[in-house]
Amino acid sequence: MNTAVAEKKPRLTTSAMIASIAAEGQRVKAAPFGKALVELAATRPDIVGMTADLAKYTDLHLFAQAYPERFFQMGMAEQLLMGAAGGLAKEGLVPFATTYAVFGTRRAYDFIHQVIAEENLNVKMCCALPGLTTGYGPSHQATEDIAMMRGIPGLTIVDPCDALDIEQAVPQIAAHQGPVYMRLLRGNVPLVLDEYDYRFELGKAKLLRDGADVLVISSGFLTMRALEVARDLAADKVDVAVLHCPTIKPLDEAAIVEAVRYRHRLVVVAENHSIVGGLGEAVASTLLRHRVQPAGFQLAGLPDAFLDAGALPTLHERYGISREALGARIKRWLD
């Protein structure tokens, strides 16, 4: 690296474990998950909350304060968390179980598979720090959680973009009969989708903007990035469409096929997840099975690697999911 350039850039610190993904000055909502759950629970006495020593860090503490008799602290024991959630569901209650995505999926996988999914139990697993939303390194970065969870039959997977997505998803995943895994953004969560005549519908992908040159299919906060990039590229006369797929499984294959067929020269799947086993591979498989061949197809996900520790802006830039880096990747793919 050119030292003169390196010296110009300030060296950022990793900061808090949960650094906000909101840009400076961006509109945010605080604790959308916790607030939505508290509101819903007022009319749903069957909803209970559980956590593995991470209520405060998943916004579930709001539920615990509002309904202490319906909140169960399981301690730092994720296998117990998922097993006991299954037990509560077997008794007709609807547990919302929270922890970090790394622990919920990697450590408790067999309990989700055998206790919860095999019996199609009504457990809602809401797990924070999805993908690259912390600079703490692989111990806390759930970059392969979707790949793992997609392998479980009958499990619904939701990867919301922003505060609006989350608050609208909560009542819908509660109403859904069966297990749900939702990737959770907590704290001050960006508010983006209210500008797009958008409503979250479980199982549905939504075209947020149309465009002739590129179609970005995305989930999670990469939809927010895609919308930013679309605005940036418009200045370069590149017309970008964005199809938001907050439900990863079951995938809205019809909407994907419809959006891709005949229309775009480049399809990019953007996700806050490893390129292995995530939305990108799911979309690729969908297109092949439906005999739809876009002129170009690229994956803008995280690399198949153990990611670095560091400050989030640095890491997002390094791994190509910052606004600038994603825009640059798409332009490169267009050339």
């Binding site: 006991a84 037990g87 569901a89 008794e91 007709g92 206790v115």
Partner: peptide, 11 residues
């Protein structure tokens, strides 16, 4: 036993 804990809490 983890399931039993959940069921006992539920009951």
């Amino acid at each position: 036993l983890p399931i039993a804990v959940g069921m006992a809490l539920g009951l």
